[in-house]
Amino acid sequence: MSMLHTINKSPFEKTSFEACLNHVNGDSSILMIEDGVYGAMKGTAFSEKVAATNGVALYILGPDMQARGISEDRLIDGVKVVDYAGFVDLVTEHDKVQAWL
């Protein structure tokens, strides 16, 4: 079954992001929202862990990314930017949603 994981915490503040990565299975997707968007940046002490999620689709919520001054060229390769409509699509395309708070 497919699962959408949402993560809204910076990986540098709390362990929520790490917990999320530790509980994703193959056909899952991760959507980074709110302060979770910092986890999508490349060149950080956390980037390799995010990039190592082989087969897991990575998404970032554009409005939250832009609000925090992150440009698309700073993102880890393969991270796709979605808007709120895309967030809704991700929710309906997966069987269920787990929010890592």
Partner: peptide, 14 residues
Amino acid sequence: MADVMDQQDVLMSF
């Protein structure tokens, strides 16, 4: 744990 979570219909976190 990841597998058990995967088998659920509704996940509530607070």
